[in-house]
Design a protein around this nucleic acid. Structure first.
Length: 420
RNA sequence: GCGGGUGUAGCUCAGUUGGUUAGAGCGCCAGUUUGUGGCACUGGAGGUCGCCGGUUCAAAACCGGUCACUCGCCCCA
């Protein structure tokens, strides 16, 4: 194997993989548009504080997973590990807090320094939406509905389960956190090492520990829903009520917590068991305090992000589109005429490949395998007579057609809307 | 950061208790077919056996290290 490899945790998106990504992104873009989300993009790197302030010290994403670097001007920059903070920063930077509500869709690469695994890369891609401004639970339900519809459009919803929880407002959360610390401190000696560390850094995270011993203790731990105050409970009820009313299936998961500090109220994940350990395919929640953490005015928001690689794996192989027509000169003498003819066809919207050189048989074979449906063959006889041979590679039939009629005949053979 | 598995041709993989020139299928190239693909047949090209070191008369095989991939932990999309 060559030493010329991509850096660890990165990969080339060759056409077959790219086709899968494009299917995911294209579907998401179209469906998000159906909900009124407009596409935007933020820079791939930001000042480090954009991520370090809101994500919180307890988050592994910031403490050990970010790519940080100093540029020639001495600025400390971070490759974005996620995009919500960047979108909210963009809202503030562009003075859009006067123009609420805002609905954004994005797609692009994210970067986390982690040990690569199935469905986990150091450079990976996310699609996501952010709904900025609304405080009510209907907005939460709407973005969840949008996520569900995208999964459905991709044909993977039936392999996913929607897990839903409420983290409550800061008051509820603090009360719960205190109770949880009390409880787990009493059991500290029996917790796994990882969870003992989490007890100090981020006690909520103990709840989704996979350690068997931890799980036994967790089963006895106080539940978050018992600590929700009236406002938090009302908010959660409005979300679940809206989901039920729209027929969106969900299951209550009191152990679902999010790794990032800025989440409050609604937390949700679409989880599949078809991808091994990385089962979360789309996840998000409400982040009402984020704007203030970044130094902006208080602006509530909800959003989610989904992993393009993970979704593409669920979707399965996607065959990259090949041009349906290949114009082939018999030999070098016909190349000029073939190029001119190909250009004529492209001008009327027919996608055309122009394989030259080598034996005609070889080119026909390649074209057939690549999915080309029709070969237009030009030899010296055809060039002299102003005609072309049209060969249907599926049927094996061939006919001679005047070049002037070629576009019309090809359109008819390919059918409407299938010319590209 | 921690643990397990795997690295042999472009791809998928064989390779016996360590033994002489490392194989197969697919793919690729050429021919049978000098203006035409799929099928068949014939021939051909293609390998630092991931890398470095060690053991041995002898290493693709055994040992150590290293790199990469992979699965899990952690974390998360």
């Amino acid at each position: 194997m060559s030493r010329l490899q991509p850096a660890r945790g990165t990969t080339d998106l060759m056409p077959a993989a790219m086709a899968g990504h494009q299917r995911v992104i294209g579907t998401a873009r179209a469906t998000a548009g159906l909900y009124g989300f407009q596409e935007m993009a933020t820079p791939i790197f930001e000042f480090a504080e954009v991520f370090s302030r809101p994500l919180g010290d307890s988050s592994d994403v910031v403490t050990k997973e970010t790519y940080n670097f100093t540029d020639r001007g001495g600025e400390t920059l971070t490759l974005r590990p996620e995009n919500t903070a960047g979108v909210v920063r963009a809202m503030i930077s562009n003075g859009l807090t006067q123009s609420l509500p805002l609905k954004f869709f994005y797609a692009g690469p994210m970067f986390r320094y982690e040990r690569p695994q199935k469905g986990r890369m150091r450079q990976f891609h996310q699609i996501g939406i952010e709904y900025l401004g609304p405080r009510d639970g209907l907005a939460d339900a709407e973005i969840i509905g949008c996520g569900a519809r995208i999964l459905d459009d991709l044909g993977v919803l039936d392999r996913c389960t929607l897990h839903l929880n409420s983290l409550g407002d800061s008051e509820s959360r603090e009360a719960y956190r205190a109770a949880l610390v009390d409880f787990f401190t009493a059991h500290e000696a029996n917790l796994s090492q990882d969870s003992q560390a989490r007890l100090k850094a981020n006690p909520l995270r103990i709840l989704d520990s996979k350690d068997a011993g931890d799980r036994a203790i967790i089963a006895e731990a106080p539940r978050l829903d018992a600590f929700l105050n009236d406002g938090s409970r009302r908010h959660f009820d409005s979300v679940t009520g809206a989901l039920d009313g729209a027929g969106i299936a969900w299951s209550f998961d009191p152990l679902l917590v999010r790794g990032l500090d800025y989440y409050c109220h609604t937390a949700f994940e679409f989880i599949t068991d078809a991808l091994g350990a990385q089962g979360t395919v789309l996840g998000g929640g409400r982040y009402d305090g984020l704007s203030e953490m970044l130094g902006g005015p208080p602006v509530p928001g909800v959003g989610w992000a989904a992993g393009v690689e993970r979704l593409a794996m669920l979707v399965g192989d996607v065959v990259p589109a090949a041009p349906p027509v290949a114009v082939m000169p018999m030999d070098g003498d016909a190349e000029g005429a073939a190029f001119a003819l190909a250009e004529t066809l492209r001008a009327v919207g027919i996608a055309v490949d122009l394989p030259t050189g080598g034996a005609i048989g070889k080119r026909l074979k390649r074209a057939d395998r690549a999915g080309v449906r029709i070969a237009v063959i030009l030899g010296s006889d055809e060039v002299a007579g102003g005609s072309a041979q049209i060969r249907d590679l599926g049927a094996g039939t061939q006919q001679e057609v005047a070049q002037a009629e070629l576009a019309t005949v090809l359109h008819a053979m390919l059918g409407e809307g299938q010319t590209s």
